[in-house]
Design a protein around this nucleic acid. Sequence first.
DNA 1: TAGGGCCTGGACAACGTTGTCAGCCCCGGG
DNA 2: CCCGGGGCTGACAACGTTGTCCAGGCCCTA
Lengths: 368, 368
Amino acid sequence: MNPSHSGDDSDDSDDRTAQVDRTRTARRPESRYGNRPTMKDVAARAGVGLKTVSRVVNAEPGVTPETERRVREAIAALGFRRNDSARVLRKGRTASIGLVLEDLADPFYGPLSRAVEEVAREHGALLINGSSAEDPDREQELALALCARRVDGLVIIPAGDDHRYLEPEMAAGVATVFVDRPAGRIDADAVLSDSFGGARDGVAHLVAGGHRRIGFIGDRPRIHTAAERLRGYRAAMEDAGIPVDERWVSLGVTDPGRVRRAAEEMLSGPDPVTAVFTGNNRVTVTVLRVLAELDRPVALVGFDDIELGDLLRPGVTVVAQDAALLGRTAAERLFRQLDGAAAAPERIVLPTRLIERGSGELSPAPAR
Amino acid sequence: MNPSHSGDDSDDSDDRTAQVDRTRTARRPESRYGNRPTMKDVAARAGVGLKTVSRVVNAEPGVTPETERRVREAIAALGFRRNDSARVLRKGRTASIGLVLEDLADPFYGPLSRAVEEVAREHGALLINGSSAEDPDREQELALALCARRVDGLVIIPAGDDHRYLEPEMAAGVATVFVDRPAGRIDADAVLSDSFGGARDGVAHLVAGGHRRIGFIGDRPRIHTAAERLRGYRAAMEDAGIPVDERWVSLGVTDPGRVRRAAEEMLSGPDPVTAVFTGNNRVTVTVLRVLAELDRPVALVGFDDIELGDLLRPGVTVVAQDAALLGRTAAERLFRQLDGAAAAPERIVLPTRLIERGSGELSPAPAR
DNA sequence: TAGGGCCTGGACAACGTTGTCAGCCCCGGG
DNA sequence: CCCGGGGCTGACAACGTTGTCCAGGCCCTA
């Protein structure tokens, strides 16, 4: 009667195991799931076989309405809920995918994660999320932990540049798609934004506005997107026939304090830059703060859109990438892999969009 | 030799199971995990017992260095990775917690989720994330799916107001903490921001600035925080002896279009409001856009901080809540429950902070 | 040299579910 | 009356791991 039988289950209706010496058997480790009822319990209570309960729970055909009613009644009375851990073990698919990203708190990754989740949901899967904090070791630790959980697939925004550690996993059938940055030293699907083209367009836009001394502040070039954006900057400058003064270029700074110093540096001195191209949303925000304190207008184009960018005066001109589309594309590709439609690894590049709002259209200060 | 043996495992070194008639046995469902090696495979290859492999993998004592070396070698050669699904089934703890929130793409929830993840990580747990999209059914579906996965605990930002569906789960030992909004119709831990006090302070701030006609735009009062903030608004008005004209109050609008219309409405007519209090970050952003198009200054205080709020002119005065602290507090409470230090359900209320940046300090337009 | 303890390793039974297969019952047809 | 067949059911063996317990082998002491 008592749903939460605590000690030995020397209950009735258990005549099969009665002959087994239960005292020698393994004791329950700690408290388990608080002794949740199992299908066996439900079966006993409903007076049916274990498998019949399974059939009801999984809506398999071949159960009399009357039997089904009894089973459902027992399920409700006991508060039974199927243990998906056991189900997973038996079936081999976990119906969950992992997402390793850099920092969920970054406004760029929120929408991306949400998009991945939405696609997962469409496929009946749950999403396990982990932040690498831009630390390659942590990325690996996370990704492998997810593999140990036997997620069906992984969406990874890489922090490191060597992903050979994933080779055994991928060979074993873990679908894998990289987003935002490509995989390092392995061949894998990747969904990227056109960092190079976007940055080139953004810088070209500044050039077209009459600027020649243009600064670039970006992340460590070890990060693929950062390197590509830098390359785009250089390409645009070269296209315009402007030799780059290396004092205009600041790389690898990422925390607000150092970005601020870098910006202030290239904005002071005898020949300050008249425009700045910023390599990602965090840098853009910091530079905006620096520019706000300045008494002269300095043009700015940033990579990544930023919220409220349209409300600032001037509005912030950006090279926008669609984080949600990035996530959605990657997740869809992942599930295509899982559905067996596995083509050769591919690199999908999504276009960026230049949004003119004012800050990128400021003219350079009159010469001298 | 070949790590990925594909067909039947009629390999060598499998003399124990050789006597079993494998033809009658269940066929492998589909492809499983792409036939990953198991501890048994490792044991066979290393020439040791199954349990010895387990001991090595779990760093249990009682294995000779030499034996351990052989086992590790076999693990590396086979590309073995422990199947945590099976482990979970056996051990009863999944070392994962679930987080049900409204929308990961909302800048308020990103940091919250990250904070929860960080605490989970400190406790060696992974985080499974789900967005309810503010739909009670979806919240329930998600929460129960997580329970079926046997997450050790749940952090829930409720969308619905009846959580009795969780009672069996909680009784069965699923640790549960509600965040941002309290649970409905059950007794459970909750970590909240002081919505009432924050809103009252914010509105009082406007009153102190000389405003009397103050608008309030908030979410559906069915949502606890929205109701509390409305209550704070009314309390502040009453404290100031200002009777509230119901045309100043707009509830339940949440999409930008309708917020815009509501704002425009209370800002037009013969006796427009001179100040607006907005009930959450999304409303604030929309109202900011409306105010930007206006030719006269209107004071604004918003609940929730918004990024770049300091860079707008005027800066946006807000009642800020600490999303990360909210998440961290909730997660810590969750793990305290899991550690058995389960006190009676408690409601923890975190203070809010009024940040003056200009928009809330604008004077009302000179009368008439 | 015998006895007792420690160390190492392995057999075995769980954990809770699902796939397979073999019964049982009942019906209809020969 | 018997047999075949079709619904329903339930027994049973996996899935891959860990807890328990026992069997040796070794070393140390008496």
